[in-house]
Write a protein that binds this DNA or RNA. Structure first.
Lengths: 187, 187
DNA sequence: TTATATATATACAGGTCTGTATATAGATTT
DNA sequence: AAATCTATATACAGACCTGTATATATATAA
């Protein structure tokens, strides 16, 4: 991918997270990225396309990071599940944390027919599916049910952290997750 | 309160929830409410003032409704806590449900210095405090900790329902809440 | 009937937004 | 040296936005 294109993606992602998507104009994005609108519209057909690509990139980055962390630290499936929220906490409390793209995007585009909303919803489903596969490998009966509960804790804690940086919500989400996981592992 | 003013509040609340706050112009609001901009700006100094009042109204309506439900159905504090998520589920699955105001608003105004963001954050805190007082009355040790965990489940489930209507997330949130509450009641 | 309060109708100023058109600069390739 | 590709600079059309100014209608009160 072109250097300029990825620069635009990084800048747009940051501005969308810190100022909101609808409140960020393309003029601001190109100014911060040090380029011009002509270039932006060469790589992205419309602003909506840019939003969609920013979301895809962010989600892929997060998923890859998390998956690598889990695989390089644990081999046993049940251990992966147990450590899931440790890494999520690491992610949320890192200074670079700016929030979860698909959570904010779905709020700014509430209409379920909107492509941005649909992608957000799909990414949330994918993440839940990922947790479910971890639970399945750990031989948990109702893997989907546990995955849904854990994803609620996850999204709730991210939401709390987006509202108030340093809320410490993830610490309690982690405790709750442990209780739910332990309960599901030994029923 | 003037009939027109409350009509504007109701219409604005609905439009903000279904189309987003920044995507809803005052022209649309007055058109749907069947009035004019002059009247809107008589009752609300700026659009931001309108947003703040919509949020306040929505939060007060929700809190009153929930509190009345709890008080008229249970006397014992621990029972109130147990039934909390039953009523929340009733609220979320009602056909009128359009999402939680402060969750969407905080996403559209991510800057922590923004008045709308601050009010959202404060309302989230107040709701958590309300759950904490329920937990305290039920003689739970770490009332604040449990309240935070329950509020994470709540906000996560609302978020899930905002992303996909009819997700059924609250059903699982309820189960998880029961486990956490039971664990905290009998430690 | 006259005065007052409330709401409407309409237009507009000044700003921002997305997306495009046009002309030019630099760098690489033929 | 000429041609080609990539990016810049700048201006602008057309739409939408908030908030205000002005004039008018309607209803209640003195």
């Amino acid at each position: 991918m072109s250097l300029l294109k990825s620069k635009i993606l990084v800048v747009a992602s940051d501005l969308f997270q810190t100022r909101g998507i609808n409140s960020t104009g393309v003029d601001t994005i190109v100014a911060v990225a040090g380029t011009t609108k002509m270039t932006l519209y060469k790589y992205f057909r419309t602003k909506e396309d840019l939003i969609l690509e920013v979301l895809k990139q962010g989600h892929q980055d997060f998923q890859s990071w998390l998956n690598d962390k889990l695989n390089s630290n644990s081999k046993k499936p049940s251990e992966k599940l147990q450590k899931l929220f440790d890494f999520i906490e690491e992610w949320v409390t890192s200074p670079n944390f700016r929030g979860m793209g698909f959570i904010k995007a779905s709020a700014e585009f509430p209409n379920e027919e909107n492509p941005v909303h649909q992608l957000s919803s799909e990414q949330s489903r994918q993440f839940r599916q990922y947790i479910s596969s971890l639970a399945s490998e750990a031989n948990i009966q109702d893997a989907d049910g546990l995955a849904l509960q854990l994803s609620l804790l996850f999204e709730g804690a991210v939401q709390a952290e987006q509202m108030k940086r340093g809320s410490g919500a993830m610490k309690y989400a982690k405790k709750a997750a442990k209780i739910l996981i332990d309960g599901a592992l030994a029923p």
